[in-house]
Write a protein that binds this DNA or RNA. Structure first.
Lengths: 238, 238
DNA sequence: AATATAACCATACATAAGTATAGATCAAGC
DNA sequence: GCTTGATCTATACTTATGTATGGTTATATT
């Protein structure tokens, strides 16, 4: 009949609790749905679910599904064959646990947040930790990948005063036309490469290290200087 | 009748080429399958596909599907309603392009690797870029999340000589027992917090800044010092 | 005790939906 | 010209599959 009922769940942990509190058979049906969708790539029928948990009657399944639907965990389109679907959050919670085998026994579901890095607050010396009420996620990989970036591992300390240490990874965005002051990955005419702060002057380019023991590199504008990209991020492992 | 035919495709680029070379209507059908699966969470019927590209007859769709099946791009289980599925590689190629709207026009398919940040090589001043033949993925978020870490945003420059700048995110691993020389997040007795390098001495702890204009903090061992965790990573956005 | 939930059973009805068969036109390649 | 693939059409047949209706027993909660 109708689609999903008033769904009061907001977060993954709500769904997690709901799944945890399911009666045994309802949990088995939910697991089996996830298994069959993953295995077959399409929704199961009532008959297949009935066979999967060894009951003789599709109406039994229908009633389990009605209960699961009331709890916001599944939905379907009325009168359409094989239109059963897991609620998105549920599918995600269960997805990583599904194996392509005959077992419909899924262990304890793992929450997605276990794969996300939370920013819990701000720390400044002389104060306490200023906690963030709703921790935001650090989104590094996909953010930069989406704008076409790649990473390079840095060797050397020419940019140490800019906080770029030996062994760090710089995240580079391809951009042949940097602004003054940008930190760039530059290819020089002699085939060497370097990470430096870039300045454009009237007749030349200047590549400036952030290390007082080193000198800037001046490149005549008639020379061949290739700017691979600008440094937009940094990652370090301690 | 049967499932998928002999599928000679091996790699994503083979599928990509096959999709690229599809006749117009077959491409439209393929796109629409992806759209409807994404939108509805279940497989479309022949009638729905027919309606989607404005033909009157389910047999038209069936013939398009036969052609797509011969090319290894879709499959279904014979005689089962709504059992149509995209081949896994195809689903992945098309998946991220699907919008939850009425359009079944999908631009050029995007590959999953576009969401991953590749380490392309090593750069050291005075040399070229030493390219990595098989670029490895930078795995930051899930790696640290899996071992229980969280991030804190740093305010101040007490650790600037360690390459930790104002505004950086430090990734903190909970650990109440750091080793000498570890950079830690510490809570002092007066309720303040700080990021410093940790040393344990005979009667005291020493929290050492990495900024010559600042002095170490000495804490008597009878005092209450809480070590929240050690700094295991750093991220900066330029 | 009364009520709600859980979990199973049966039969009957209705139709969504896949398949079969047959046909036509057009375009491209040999 | 002939063949193949692409793309559309029609009608008919069949059944997989959801829904409706009705029933029972056991358990937990109020």
């Amino acid at each position: 009949m109708n689609n999903i009922e008033n769904n009061e769940f907001v977060s993954a942990s709500d769904y997690y609790q709901a799944i945890e509190g399911l009666p045994k058979r309802q949990r088995e049906v939910l697991n089996l749905i996830a298994v069959l969708i993953k295995r077959n790539g399409y929704s199961p029928s009532l008959a297949e679910l009935a066979e999967g948990i060894n009951v003789r009657n599709r109406m039994t399944i229908n009633q389990h599904l009605e209960a699961l639907k009331r709890k916001g965990l599944v939905s379907w389109s009325a009168n359409l064959k094989r239109s059963l679907k897991l609620t998105d959050a549920v599918a995600e919670l269960l997805n990583d646990q599904v194996e392509d085998n005959n077992s419909n026994t899924i262990p304890f579901p793992k929450s997605k947040s276990e794969y996300e890095l939370n920013v819990m607050g701000t720390i400044s010396a002389g104060s306490g930790i200023d906690a963030i009420e709703n921790p935001e996620k650090l989104d590094i990989e996909s953010y930069y990948a989406k704008i076409g970036c790649y990473a390079l591992k840095v060797k050397g300390d020419s940019m140490i005063d800019a906080g770029i240490n030996d062994g760090d990874y710089v995240i580079v965005k391809p951009n042949p036309s940097p602004n003054n002051g940008d930190i760039v990955v530059a290819l020089l005419e002699d085939g060497t490469a370097t990470v430096k702060r870039f300045y454009k002057e009237s007749n030349s380019f200047k590549l400036v290290p952030e290390n007082p023991s080193m000198n800037p590199i001046i490149i005549d504008k008639s020379s061949n200087l290739t700017i691979q990209g600008i440094v937009v991020g940094l990652f370090r492992q301690f």
